[in-house]
């Protein structure tokens, strides 16, 4: 790890001021991605601003028809939350399947969303459910938030404070985990929403996306068997040592079928 400064501000305003004052500063939450990245010397921030304990970033509560989850809530906390389990059971199960137990004990929702790893689980739920990401400056629709590989609409110094997920009882997340890392080789979040079936795919390689052709087919009365001949957005799939683009496309079909079957089970 390159040398750096570590600071743990006592409040959100102080954290924001620290991040805005130094463009090379980085927010540190659970650190389950960031610390391995730093140890591998893949990044060299001047300063880590620890936001993991900030009270303003905690809490899980119903707000009308939405569940508001603080950005610093851990995957373990989300997976064990009765509020989440009651409103969006699939989201709690997704959180309970991220990484491994130690990662879930430290890793946070806000960190995962802001990092936007192309194989992360949470972005698929946010996109499929039309979640809204609340930051220190504004509210951003999930569809506008995830912009590219490891990239989001967040501006320098802007911090995710909470994610608001619309309540959804009929949803399921199914992933094919990489056997070593447990990251999704392909993960599919399917949800029956008021606006129709939503299908978001993660792990394809180029970032989370909605498979709109499949959504339309299901909304038109089609079943899982009707997805086999549907086009997938080829640009979204890449090849790496874990699997070829063709293999990932095959997995996307299979996982989508399983997710829809689980929604309707």
């Amino acid at each position: 790890m390159y040398d750096l400064a570590y600071v743990r501000p006592g409040g959100l305003a102080e954290a924001t001021a620290l991040l805005e004052a130094d463009e090379n500063a980085t927010a540190l939450a659970g650190g389950q991605t960031l610390l391995p990245v730093l140890r591998a010397r893949l990044a060299s921030p001047s300063r880590l601003v620890d936001v993991a304990r900030l009270a303003e970033l905690k809490g899980m509560a119903l707000d009308g028809d939405r569940v508001v989850i603080g950005a610093a809530e851990t995957h373990a906390a989300v997976s064990q939350s009765p509020v989440v389990a009651g409103a969006i059971p699939a989201l709690g199960r997704l959180a309970g399947g991220i990484g491994d137990p130690q990662v879930r004990n430290r890793g946070t929702l806000g960190g995962a969303i802001a990092n936007n790893d192309p194989a992360a689980c949470y972005p698929s739920a946010a996109l499929a459910l039309d979640a809204v990401i609340r930051t220190t400056r504004r509210e951003i629709a999930a569809a506008d938030f995830f912009t590219d590989l490891f990239s989001t609409a967040l501006e320098p110094g802007e911090l995710v404070t909470a994610v608001m997920f619309p309540r959804c009882a009929q949803a399921a997340y199914v992933k094919f985990p990489n056997p070593a890392s447990r990251f999704a080789l392909i993960g599919v979040f399917a949800a029956r929403t008021a606006a129709g079936m939503r299908i978001a795919v993660t792990g394809a390689g180029a970032g989370v996306f909605r498979w709109r052709e499949a959504e339309l087919r299901i909304d038109a009365g089609g079943g899982v068997a009707d997805l086999d001949d549907l086009a997938l957005p080829e640009d979204a799939f890449t090849s790496d040592l874990h699997g070829s683009a063709d293999y990932r496309m095959h997995l996307a079909r299979v996982m989508t079928g399983r997710a829809i079957a689980a929604v309707d089970a």
């Binding site: 570590y6 540190l28 389950q32 610390l35 140890r39 880590l48 130690q102 004990n105 430290r106």
Partner: peptide, 23 residues
């Protein structure tokens, strides 16, 4: 060196964490 093996696991405030992935 990659926070994957878990040999560094300790309890922090009662929960298991990888002490190589925490300052």
């Amino acid at each position: 060196d990659t926070s994957q093996c878990g040999a560094c696991t300790v309890l922090v405030d009662g929960v298991a964490v990888k002490s190589c992935a925490m300052l």
